[in-house]
Simulated scan of single mutants.
Amino acid sequence: MGGVDVLSDLLHRARARNTLVRQLIQRPPWSVTFADAAPLTVVAVLGGGASVRLDDLDASPARLAAGDIALIGATGRCTIADSPSTPPEVVIREGRKYRVGGGEPVDGTSWNLAPRTYGDGRPGGTTMLRGVCELHGEVGDRLLAMLPPLAVVPAGPRTRPALELLAAEVAREEPGQDAVLHRLLDLVVVVALRAWCAGPGPVLPAWYRALSDPAIGEALRLLHEDPARRWTVAALAAEVGMSRAAFAACFAALVGEPPLTYLTGWRMTLAADLLSDTDATVAAVAREVGYEDAFAFSVAFKRTRGTSPSLWRREAR
């Protein structure tokens, strides 16, 4: 098996942007509410402990120990504190800091310890990293759909080296530092996502579970590697060494939908992002995702997205 794997394909196409990494070093008690969370937030505790609560959801706070990573896919209010019982002290809204109950923003310079580092800096407290990033388009939504609103990845040997790299770089101020932090945050997200998927208990999408099957995993890889190819069920079955009937039944059982239905959904995901991101004509987008007939593409797009490609493009922009 060679070429692109499905998770790597999603991560590449979802290419995180507008990343931001900050470090907190603070003695208890402390509590910070983020009023407008990013589509994906990473919280990692390097020392001490922290509590993460999604304020808009009726769920218990998650407790993080040193080395734990939380992946937050919910975009509502989120409170991070030393303890669930610590009342909120400050609210961060649109990048500005406000005291709880106060209307005017407060000067945050007294909190600044170093580049991208804030808190009181006193020993014996919590050292925490918080990274935010915006995943791109419909592919990013597909990736986020793998996660619950709050996924906690326990400390482990596979995630620790990436965290240590990010922690070593966050307070530095050198040429290209933002690019370094962007890539290291990507690395932390990937290893944490992979560790979470491999752990006990997560309810993963059927397509992800199907990757562990050699034949169906290979078929999914082929569909992602060359989605524009004029695939048939028979051609896919031949590629993975199965009979057409056995392959179709196995694919539907593991993935939850027939092969060509999966392919159409993936093509429409790619097409939605092409329409949003490029000035290519509808006919050109249709060809890019495997449709020679722009009318057939428009019908398929409207059936899956509820609107025409042209209207989708106007609304996206």
Rank of each mutant, 00 (worst) to 15 (best):
P214H: 02
A316E: 11
R305Y: 03
E174L: 15
R287Y: 04
V100H: 07
G121R: 04
T127G: 08
Q23H: 14
S276E: 10
L254I: 09
S212A: 15
V91Q: 08
A238W: 09
W312P: 09
G256A: 11
S298V: 02
A272Q: 07
P29T: 12
T269H: 03
F295E: 12
V32A: 10
P61A: 02
V21K: 00
Y208N: 10
R116Y: 08
V203I: 14
C133G: 11
A219K: 00
A235Q: 10
A114D: 15
T281S: 15
L143A: 04
T261Y: 01
R317K: 13
V170Q: 06
D141A: 15
D82M: 10
G137Y: 05
V91A: 07
L71R: 00
A253I: 09
P28N: 09
D5K: 06
K97M: 15
P105V: 00
Y118I: 15
E134Q: 06
G101Y: 06
G201M: 12
M1I: 13
G176S: 11
V189P: 07
R313G: 04
A59Y: 06
I92T: 07
L166H: 00
R27P: 01
V32G: 10
L144Y: 02
S276N: 03
P149T: 08
D226R: 15
S31I: 09
D58Q: 06
V106P: 00
E218M: 11
S110I: 12
L236T: 01
E169V: 05
D279W: 05
V190W: 12
A179N: 07
L46A: 01
I69A: 07
L254G: 04
H136N: 14
T304M: 14
W266R: 10
C78G: 04
R209M: 12
V299T: 10
R99H: 07
A234K: 08
L144N: 05
L144A: 01
R27T: 12
T79F: 02
Y118E: 14
P87K: 12
L220E: 01
F34C: 10
I25W: 03
D5T: 14
R13M: 08
